[in-house]
Design a protein around this nucleic acid. Sequence first.
DNA 1: GTGGGTGCAAATACTTTGCAACCGA
DNA 2: TCGGTTGCAAAGTATTTGCACCCAC
Lengths: 133, 133
Amino acid sequence: MKEENYLTTERITSQKEVILNYLRNTKSHPSAQKVYAEVKKVLPRISQGTVYRVLSLLNKKGEVQEISTRDITFYDGDMSDHSHFICQGCGTVFDIFDECSRCKIIKEKKTKVGKINSFRIYFYGICKKCKKG
Amino acid sequence: MKEENYLTTERITSQKEVILNYLRNTKSHPSAQKVYAEVKKVLPRISQGTVYRVLSLLNKKGEVQEISTRDITFYDGDMSDHSHFICQGCGTVFDIFDECSRCKIIKEKKTKVGKINSFRIYFYGICKKCKKG
DNA sequence: GTGGGTGCAAATACTTTGCAACCGA
DNA sequence: TCGGTTGCAAAGTATTTGCACCCAC
């Protein structure tokens, strides 16, 4: 009758280290496929399955965050307090460090959804570049 | 040399009408699969492809809106000004009519992303129910 | 040595698309 | 009639998973 995380010790492997290191040192928001391609340069034998499993694990641990768009899930190694703007045209993810005080209040107060201690804010729209073209 | 929407007239079909009617008259946020299942009760011969195509069309025309989560894209026939809260635990989409004045300002002013006339706001977190369980 | 992690490949699941038939204007 | 739309089925794509082997502790 094993519960989640019951009596298990997480093991540190080079795969995890390389993936986390890559996400911490990029300012882009790579997809799992992109992470796979990049990490493969360092660890040629790594598999897609491992990349997806490690990314999921890191997300659950709060070491990285997932940014899910219509088609692809992107990953961000920057866990500082910021929001994201996702362009519905080209799918690009932009960081928004411009903090919203009203949203800060919502974060700490009751909402119709219930009491929420922390959540992420996403903006969906059309970016400057796509608006032109 | 046909451009997008160049010299084409949109045709009104029962498929479109039934799908739009269904989305306008539900307060839930059904997935394409759910729309397919429900509409099939009225139009037994409708196909998944048609449902996806019509939903995509209605979204482009601004008659309904897509709400994309990690796994599934949901559809909302309510185009009034409101935001969404998406539970990362159970995937449920909640409406948030609690307007954020600061975000309203961002909507109309320049941001680091560029000048944005309209966009949607999404909150990702854990809902009350999932927090308990 | 033990059991969590990994590589590999097959399987999922949602969504898209090619094509011939269909039908609204 | 004309060409946008549909049904059907196959294909596409991101992601997940079963399993035997591997290796960090």
